[in-house]
Nucleic acid binder design. Structure first.
Lengths: 105, 105
DNA sequence: ATTGTTTATCGTAAATATACGATTATTATA
DNA sequence: TATAATAATCGTATATTTACGATAAACAAT
């Protein structure tokens, strides 16, 4: 865009938008579901389940890590991902708060 | 992208992602808040509050309409927007369901 | 040591999203 | 009827996202 105006909004608006953005692609929703189901997932297991190339899945995983929704640890050649409950719960809180605001009338 | 793989995911994953996408820009979060606060907003009121050009706000409004989160009616030269409670509540439901799935362990 | 596994990163192409000014269309007002 | 107000749409520039194959890096197995 000509200019990026995103930081001219409030902190809470930006935070909520960032969280929403992290879940704005079905692949990332699917990843979150897969990880939640098994409590923890190896990268390869996720690649198997998604209709995307390994490099693309890696990219989506990176975004979920950056957003803080997942945390990752390395075990040998394998990468284990699990849901970052702390951050995720914080976001659920923001979301519910937002939902409440939109329901006050 | 070379190809768009979005429709290779499940309907519920796509729906949730679409909802998240609609809220993935702080301007759209701000619009939803502004409309909720006053129960109904004229386009001009929203433009006044946001740090964006009128045409850009119109574009964001259109996306919220497309996603079904807002409904709009025309009154003379003015456009009134309000939250489409039915659709919005449905999305809240999907979201809460998703949250539950991620908390089953 | 060589080979295989696993996953992240790089480079790149193509699609989408964001932002604006200018214009248009519609309605209200003078 | 002419002018002002309001908001949608068009055209366009630029930024970001999505997707892939190829490669690299790190470890495991032979």
């Amino acid at each position: 865009m000509a200019q990026n105006k995103k930081n001219e909004f409030s902190k809470s608006e930006i935070e909520l938008a960032d969280f929403a953005r992290a879940l704005s692609h079905p692949a990332r929703v699917a990843i979150m579901k897969a990880v939640a189901e098994k409590n923890m997932c190896i990268c390869g297991e996720i690649v198997e389940v998604l209709p995307l190339a390994q490099s693309t899945v890696s990219q989506h995983l990176k975004e979920l890590l950056n957003a803080g929704l997942l945390s990752g640890t390395v075990d040998g050649t394998k990468s284990c991902y699990c849901i970052n409950r702390k951050v995720f719960d914080k976001f659920i809180g923001s979301f519910n708060k937002f939902f409440l605001i939109t329901q006050e009338n």
